[in-house]
Design a protein around this nucleic acid. Sequence first.
DNA 1: GAGCACTGC
Length: 651
Amino acid sequence: MPHDPDPPPAKKFKPGSVFFRLEKNKPGMLLPRKGNNNVTTPIDVQRKRLPIYQAKPQLVYQLRQLNNAIVIGETGSGKTTQIPQYLYECGTGRQGIIAITQPRRVAAISLAGRVAEERRTQLGKLVGYTVRFEDVTSSETKLKFMTDGMLLREAIGDPLLLRYTVVVLDEAHERTVHTDVLFGVVKTAQRRRREINKVPLKVIVMSATMDVDLFSEYFNKSPVLYLEGRQHPIQIYYTKQPQPDYLQGALVSVFQIHQEAPPSHDILVFMTGQEEIEALARTCRDIAKHLPDGCGPMVVIPLYASLPPAQQLRVFHPAPKGHRKVILATNIAETSVTISGIKYVIDTGMVKAKRFNPDSGLEVLAVQRVSKAQAWQRAGRAGREDSGFCYPSLCFTKCVGSEHVLFIPEAVRAAVEQLELLGAVEKKEEQVLLTSLGKKMANFPLEPRYAKTILLSPDYSCCEEILSIVSLLSVDSVLYNPPARRDEVHAARRKFTSSEGDHMTLLSIYRAFKKVSGNKEWCRENFVNSRNMSLVKEVQAQLREICLKLNMKLESCGADTGKVRRCLAHGMFINTAELQPDGTYLALDTHQTVAIHPSSVLFQSKPAYVIFNELLHTSRCYMRDLCLVDPDWLLDTASEYFVRKLHLTKS
DNA sequence: GAGCACTGC
C-alpha cells in the first residue's frame, strides 16, 4: 500500500474564495512560490525547485531570530524536509539536536529517509528517526525525526528536553492528546531553560491550515510565516441546509456529479465504516444500471482497512474507458492511502471514532462529526494534480471546532485516577507527582497497566510469560480469521484453546509458534499471522532488554499458568467483571453491565470473575480478551479497592 | 452468537 510521505495537503487560498482567511491586519507575510518538481532531476536541483527555496533567505533570517514561530505551508512547499536542513546549514541549534515531530510513524520514517538522501548520508548518522520499538539514530544525529508520542516519552525523563536546541512540531493541525500535551511540555521547557540560563530552546509550530490564532496566542503571540505551495485550487459547494441524512445526501451528490461531469473525473466519498460503505455501494450499482441514455457506466469501489490488500489495490486501477470511478472510503483515504486522479470529494462529514464518555469513564466507538481540520484534510484529497471540487454534507462551521479543546478535562482526570490506582502517581498539595513505581513504569513504551503487570511479574516467577502476553497484546492481532473458512479456523484453533481464557490461549499459540521456529507453513495451517507473530518476538526482546536494565529476574513459570493469571489479576484489577445472578456481567470499576464478546474463548462459559483487556461499545458493551481469575486473588492484592467496589455493588 | 475507523507509546 503506497503511503503518502507528504504532510497532509493544504488548500490553495484564493482571494475571495471560501477558504481565504488571511486578514489584512494579521501579523505575518506571504512568501513567494515558484518552480516545478520532477523526480528524474538531481536531488539538489529538486531541492532548489521547491517553492520554499525562494523564501530561504527571509525564512532563515526570521527563524534564527525568533524563539517561537508558526509556519503555515501547503503540501509540496517542502517545509518539513527543508526547514530542519536550513536551520542546520546556518548553524542554528548546532549545540544540540533538531527534533521534528510527526503524528505518524510512517511519516517520521520516510521523511528521515528523504532528508538523509538529500544530505547524501546514511540514515542513522546525521539524519535519523525514533519511533516506538525502533531507534535509528546515533551520537552523530543532529536532525531527528520522531513521533510526537516519542518526544513526549522522552520528556518524562528529561522535562527540559536538554538534548534538543530546536523542536519543530509538525502537522500541528492534526490535534491529538499527544500534540496538545507536547505544546505544554515545550512551552514549559522553554521558559524553565531561560530561567536557569540553559541553552535556549527554539520552538517552531508547523501547520497546513490557517486556523493558527490559538497556536500563535499560546506561544506568546509568535509571528506567523506563510508559505505557498503547489496545491491546485479547490472549489467548495455548500448545500444550503446541512443534510439531515448524510447518506442520502452523498448518494444524491454522486449521481448529480455523474450526470454532469466528464466520465474521467473520479469521485471519492468519505463515509464511516464497512457496513455503510457496502450498502451504499450496492445502491449505487443498482441505480447506475437504470440510468437514462447519455449517462455513462460507473465502477464503484469500496475502500476500508479490513479489506484484503488485493482488493484495496483496486482503487489504483484506472476505470475502463468511459466509466466513472466512484470510491467509497473510510478515513483510510484521508492520510494512509493517496489516490491520484480524484476530481471530486463528497464528504458526509461523519467519522467513526473512539470518543471518551465522561459518564461511564469509557472510550466508546461511535459515529460522530468530523473536526474542522479533518474536513479540510478531506477536501484536500481532491485537486492533488489538478483543480478539484468538494461537496461537504455539513457546513464547515458545523464541524466540531477542535481548536477550542486543548485538553479534555474528564479524560485527563480519569487517566490520573487510573495512575493513582496503579500507584504510579500520588497527589501532594494539589500536585500530581510520579512515584518511584511510576518512574519505573515509564521505562516501558506501554500502557501503564501493562507496564505495572510486567513489574509485578517477578513476584509471581512468570516474567517471561507476562512479557510474551503483553507483546502479543501490543501488536496487531496474530490471529487470522477469514470468515469464509470459519469452520477450519475453529478446528485449527481448538488445540490451543485454554479454559483459562484468551491470554492463555494466545500464550499457548505463541509457545507453539516458537517450538516450530516460526515455520510459515505451520502459521498458514493454524491461521496465525506470521508477520505479526514475528513482530511479537521482536517486541518481547526489547521489553526483555528494559527488564534487564531494571535488574528484574526473568523467570518462567513453565506449566504453572495459575501464576500468570494471578499476576494479570494483580496488574489489571481495575478491569474486573463479576457474574450477576441474571447471567450478565458487571464491570466493577464503572458499574456498567457488560457481556463477553463472542470472539472470546470464554464466550460459551460463565466464569464468576474475569479480568478483561478492553471494552468495546457497539450493539452492547463487550469485554474483549478475558482471563479467568479467582476473587481471592483480587482481594489479596487490592483489598481496599475491592471491598469498596463490592460494597457498592451490593448496596 | 458478534463484527472491526485510524493512529500512537
